[in-house]
Amino acid sequence: MNIDREEARRIAELARLDLDDDALVRMAAEMTKILTYIDQLREVDVEGFEEHTAEATPLRDDEPRPSLDRSSAERNAPQWTGGFFVVPKVIGGE
């Protein structure tokens, strides 16, 4: 599989990573090399083997329990005001 700079840019946007042109070129070359190795999976006979599914997750009763208190959340927040995480304006911002 060959990844070019534009494909790397598309993936970086999906991954929410801001990479400049030089970084994208390097990333594309490294991904191409790794995916070329991974492409050997095409030669494996997987007839009769379906996608591995995890063991069933056990269920529990949905009972209310105390969760993290706000002051604990606030201590780690980059920006916090009046009990809320603060982010830049989403509508009509800069």
């Binding site: 990844i3 790397a8 993936i11 970086a12 999906l14 991954a15 990573l17 990333m27 991904m31 790794i34 995916l35 991974i38 999976l41 095409r42 494996v44 006979d45 997987v46 083997f49 379906e50 996608e51 591995h52």
Partner: peptide, 25 residues
């Protein structure tokens, strides 16, 4: 980046799906 690629539309079956089938084997 590699993980996002393997799960992205158009490549999921060829990469993630295939890898999970080999894992089952």
């Amino acid at each position: 980046m590699l993980g996002t690629f393997a799960l992205s539309s158009g490549y999921y079956d060829a990469y993630y799906g295939r890898a999970q089938r080999v894992r089952a084997r």
